[in-house]
């Protein structure tokens, strides 16, 4: 700190605060993108759906849109949800 700054006090522009603010925004943004990506469907899902469809068709006539397979992620566990709609005359 030089003579003038000593008498005038610290400089106004505390750039570290700006850095912290900018970083907290960008990091929060990138983290949320990461967790969303991780929350997307697992790779096996299409194959699982196809095989389930094949098995069900052995016993009942179903269309592809009658079988709904999805994975839902919550904080503590992942849920594999399976919904099969059987038509009336099955």
């Amino acid at each position: 700190m030089g003579l003038i700054e000593f008498f005038l006090g610290k400089r106004e522009d505390q750039t570290a605060n700006i850095a912290k603010e900018r970083l907290s925004v960008v990091i929060a943004h990138e983290r949320s993108a990461r967790t969303q990506k991780r929350g997307s469907d697992p790779e096996y899902l299409p194959k699982l759906k196809q095989e389930l469809l094949d098995v069900i068709r052995k016993y009942a006539p179903v269309q592809e849109e009658d079988v709904d397979v999805r994975v839902e992620k919550s904080e503590n566990c992942d849920i594999l949800e399976l919904n099969i709609n059987l038509s009336d005359h099955a």
């Binding site: 610290k10 522009d13 505390q14 750039t15 570290a16 605060n17 850095a19 912290k20 970083l23």
Partner: peptide, 17 residues
């Protein structure tokens, strides 16, 4: 440089990461 507000402090970095 941390004292004069020109550099992120250790606490700042720990908070962020």
């Amino acid at each position: 440089r941390v004292d004069t507000g020109q550099m992120l402090s250790v606490n700042d970095i720990v908070d962020l990461l």
